[in-house]
Every structure is written in structure tokens, then in C-alpha cells.
Computed example of a mutant assay.
Amino acid sequence: MQFIFAARRGRRVLQRFNKLQQTATLSTRVPLATSHVQHVFRTAENRAAPLIKTGNYTLERFTTVQKYHYSAAATDKPRKGPKETEGSKKKDTKAKKPKKTKKTKKEVTPEQMEKKKAAQKKVKLRKEIKDLKLQSLRKEEPRSQTLRPWIVFIREKVRGTTSLDESRSRFQTAAEEYRNLSASEREALERQTAATMQERNRIYAEWVNSHTPLQIKTANRARRRLAFLTAEHRKNTLKYPAIKDDRLVKMPTSSYIFFSRERMQSGDLDHLSTQEKRERVHTEWAAASEQEKQPYSQKAAEDKERYVREYREVYGEDPRSSSNAKSKTASSA
């Protein structure tokens, strides 16, 4: 009997529930599953009296739970957790950054250090040579080579050859033709060579005068340095000849040079060879006293004053020797 009463009570509850669903809006309607029916029957069997007493309150509570559960299930969207703030994100990114590890210095062997120094020295030398070539004015310098009549004749005959064999055959033929030239033809060739050299000298003089004496002096100094740096890689050191300019200041003459000139021009050493003359002059100078050297030292001092005066007038600056002397006297004072 109790089971029958419980079933009746459960049926009543379901009827009320269905009415409530019909009166609710379409968005809140939720289909009733069999599991919930069983749950209702169990509650009706076990809690018949409290359900009858409380009535609508229990049904309303039950329907709100159903709405929440089935509305979330119908959307098939996962439930979102708490929103992350900007501060939390920043903290997470900071926490994820790996710690910086200190780089350990690699030990360098003496051989590696020597190789590194040698490479740096090569780079420095290459840069110095490049700068010196710009200062030397070598690229823009016109030709100043001395010409000979036979060189002009052979160049005219060999010009236009495309192969080595052809140039050799033409050279041999031109040499034979030059030997068989008549006197009038040789004179005409000499006049042609002299005219060519005169034109070359004119062009060269114009180029030299287009630069200041200080630029020419700097170019000659750069050429001397280039000849010294590149002497190991080539046998001929005449690749960088000095620029000829009459405006350049002549270097001062030493007391030994004045003595040597006087002894060579005296005629006392004419019976000796050049090497023997030099050895004799060197021996006499070493054996001379300070009183005997005094006239030559006086000439050297006067010539040095001339050099300093002309250096300032031509180049517009003091020579290195005088500037170094001034700095030494200033530091000592």
C-alpha cells in the first residue's frame, strides 16, 4: 500500500512539474530525463510528507537546478574559469623566462694569441699601405720616363700586336730595321724623341705645379714608406720614385759631408779608387780633432738655419726637428 501511495504522490509531482514547464518560457524549457524521474520517485517514496507540506517551494527549487544544469549542457561550451588579469599574465611571463647563464671565457692558447696578433698586424699594414698610396699621388702622376730613339722606333713597330709570337717576330724585325737606318733617318728619329720628351716634361711640370710644395713633400715621404713596406714582396724598389720639384727645400748638410766634399775636390785622392777615397776620408775625419772640425761644424749650423728658414717660408710650418726641440725645452723648463 505504501508503494501505491508513493507512486500516486510521485505522479502528482510530475503533473505539477509538467504544468510548470508549459507555463515557463521556451528558453528555460528543459527535456526531462529518465534519471530525474527515478530521482523524483525516490524522493516521493522516502520524503513523502515533507514534499507534500512544502509543495511548490521544493518544485521551484528543483526546476532552477534543472534549468542551470541543462542550459549549460545544451550550449556545449566549456565553463570559463576566472579571467586572467594583466598583472597575472605579466607575472607568468616573467616566471617563464629562463635565467641567464654566465658565459664562461674560453682559454686562449699562446699559439692562438700569436695568430690573432699576426692577423691584426696584417690588417693594420694593409690599411696603412692603402692610405699611403692615396697620399703618394701615384695614380694621377703623368709619365716622366726618359725616352730613347730606339725605344720610340720599336714601340711604333710593335704597337697593335695581339699575340706573344707576333710581338716577338715584329721586335726582331724592328731591331734589324733600326740597325740599317741611315744617318738622316736617325736624326729625324732623335728630333721626334726630343719633341715627345719635351711635351712630356711640360705636362709633368704642370701637374707638379698644380700641387703645393707641402703636398709634394708628403707624397715623397709616403713613397719612401711604401718602398720600405713593400721591399719584401718585390726586388725592384724603383716602383715609387720621388717626385721632382725644384720648390722643395733641400735637407741640411752635415759637417762630415762638407769635409768629404772638400777632400774629394782637393785632388789629393785622385789616384785612388772610389771605395779607397771613401775609406781614406772616413779615417781622416775620425782622426781629426775638435778644433779641426770646427769650420765644418760652423758651416753645418749655418746650413741648418737656412733649412729652417726656407722650410717655414715654403711649407708654412716648422720642421720636425725644430718642433721636437721646442717641446723638449718647454718640458724641461
Score class of each variant (00 low, 15 high):
257 I>F: 07
80 K>G: 07
140 E>D: 14
249 V>C: 08
18 N>E: 14
119 A>F: 01
328 K>E: 11
192 Q>V: 01
34 T>D: 13
77 K>F: 04
237 T>E: 15
4 I>D: 13
129 I>S: 03
103 K>D: 06
105 K>Y: 01
289 S>F: 13
89 K>D: 00
328 K>G: 05
111 E>V: 04
209 N>T: 07
48 A>I: 08
135 Q>I: 11
54 T>K: 13
232 E>S: 15
30 V>G: 04
6 A>K: 10
46 N>L: 14
65 V>L: 09
215 Q>G: 07
310 E>M: 06
230 T>I: 01
291 Q>M: 02
286 A>E: 07
188 A>Y: 06
268 D>R: 02
326 K>G: 10
123 V>D: 14
267 G>H: 01
191 R>W: 07
83 K>D: 05
261 R>L: 09
207 W>F: 08
31 P>A: 09
100 K>H: 03
169 S>Y: 07
193 T>K: 03
136 S>Q: 04
120 Q>R: 02
180 N>Y: 09
316 G>C: 00
21 Q>F: 10
121 K>D: 06
216 I>G: 05
116 K>V: 00
317 E>R: 11
40 V>L: 15
186 R>L: 08
9 R>Q: 15
17 F>V: 08
112 Q>A: 09
49 A>N: 09
303 D>E: 07
280 R>N: 00
132 L>G: 04
6 A>M: 08
217 K>L: 15
104 T>K: 08
75 T>E: 15
130 K>M: 07
271 H>N: 02
112 Q>W: 02
282 H>S: 14
264 M>Q: 07
218 T>R: 13
96 K>A: 06
23 T>S: 13
25 T>Q: 08
120 Q>M: 06
17 F>K: 03
255 S>L: 01
63 T>I: 14
117 K>I: 04
257 I>M: 01
285 W>S: 02
282 H>V: 04
63 T>H: 11
178 Y>V: 02
297 S>P: 00
259 F>I: 04
326 K>R: 13
97 K>E: 08
56 N>V: 11
287 A>E: 01
203 I>T: 10
178 Y>K: 02
18 N>M: 11
264 M>N: 02
219 A>G: 05
128 E>S: 10
277 K>D: 00
15 Q>G: 06
86 E>Q: 05
269 L>W: 00
315 Y>H: 06
264 M>L: 10
315 Y>S: 04
275 Q>T: 00
38 Q>N: 11
125 L>F: 03
240 Y>F: 14
168 R>V: 05
99 K>A: 08
71 S>Y: 09
55 G>W: 04
88 S>A: 04
127 K>M: 08
113 M>P: 00
179 R>V: 12
273 S>I: 03
298 Q>S: 08
230 T>N: 07
315 Y>K: 03
140 E>S: 15
149 P>M: 01
111 E>G: 01
146 T>R: 15
294 Q>K: 11
213 P>C: 02
297 S>M: 14
322 S>Y: 07
135 Q>R: 08
94 K>G: 07
281 V>R: 05
22 Q>A: 12
136 S>H: 00
310 E>L: 15
141 E>C: 11
120 Q>N: 14
73 A>G: 12
38 Q>D: 10
73 A>M: 10
177 E>P: 04
12 R>T: 13
169 S>C: 07
88 S>Y: 03
